[in-house]
């Protein structure tokens, strides 16, 4: 199972955001897309799931050319996709339980009990029992992210996209969330793609790292390879902090 991004271009107005980006993501790995703020990570992910149309190039899901499909054909692939948005994007008007159950209500033929079981299973999986009846406004940032993950995995996706799942969280909670995503990826054998600029994530679990700078792919490799890269931009980005410099030594 893989997703291939083939030579995509995306611009807004006359601002070129992605330029000739080609990468391949494989399942069962922690695929990380890293890059500075405004480098085009979110745009790349949104192009991959079809929230933005690419100007040129192709997105291929296991030999299914997503870019050429119409709404109906895409729907099948979309039901295999789970996504965790940068801001959570929980439905404000629905409580946690209904948020997670949303996709199931729309597409599954499960009974109410089965759906509730699934919801509780997902909540358990993200270590959030007993929040079923709370509304998004009553949750903390970290809880929202976890509910968003629970919602993303509720439909048993084959592909999981996470846009900065641990930004704005304290270091411990970020690690919890990273581990959670890794566990889910291995456990359910999902193709996971994570946008991040969290260096801890990069060092700890980057099995396939794609570094994007100014809308282009500058470097690809694993977390073991980051220490001896001969590329100024990349090194400036990764080893910006003192702690990372120490780590390099």
């Amino acid at each position: 199972m893989k997703i291939e991004v083939k030579n995509i271009y995306k611009s807004f107005g006359n601002k070129q955001v992605l330029e000739d980006v080609s990468v391949t993501f494989e399942k069962g790995k922690m695929n990380l897309v890293i890059g500075g703020s405004g480098s085009g990570k979110t745009v790349l992910i949104k192009c991959m799931v079809g929230l933005y149309e690419v100007d040129k190039g192709q997105i291929v899901y296991d030999d299914r050319n997503f870019s050429d499909m119409d709404f109906k054909e895409r729907k099948h692939i979309r039901q295999e996709i789970g996504m965790v948005f940068q801001g959570g994007a929980l439905f404000d008007s629905l409580n946690v339980e209904k948020n997670i159950m949303f996709g199931l209500n729309m597409f599954s033929t499960m009974s109410r009990e089965e759906k509730l079981d699934r919801v509780n299973f997902c909540l358990q999986r993200v270590n959030l029992p007993n929040v079923n009846k709370l509304f998004p406004s009553e949750l903390s940032g970290g809880m929202k992210k976890r509910v968003a993950i629970a919602r993303a995995i509720a439909m048993k996706p084959k592909y999981l996209f996470c846009d900065e799942p641990n930004s704005g969280l304290d270091p411990r909670t970020s690690i919890v969330i990273d581990n959670l995503i890794e566990e889910i990826t291995k456990e359910f054998d999902i193709l996971t793609i994570i946008n991040t600029h969290d260096m801890n994530t990069v060092v700890e679990m980057g099995e396939n790292i794609v570094y994007i700078h100014k809308g282009k792919v500058w470097w690809e490799g694993t977390n073991h390879e980051i220490y001896d890269v001969d590329n100024k931009e990349f090194n400036d980005f990764i080893f910006a902090s003192r702690i990372m410099k120490k780590l390099k030594k």
């Binding site: 949104k46 799931v49 079809g50 929230l51 895409r74 729907k75 099948h76 979309r78 039901q79 996709i81 789970g82 996504m83 948005f85 994007a89 929980l90 439905f91 404000d92 949303f102 996709g103 729309m106 597409f107 439909m155």
Partner: peptide, 9 residues
């Protein structure tokens, strides 16, 4: 949130 709906198909 609208994107989230779209993603679900």
């Amino acid at each position: 949130q609208i994107d989230a709906l779209e993603i679900m198909g």
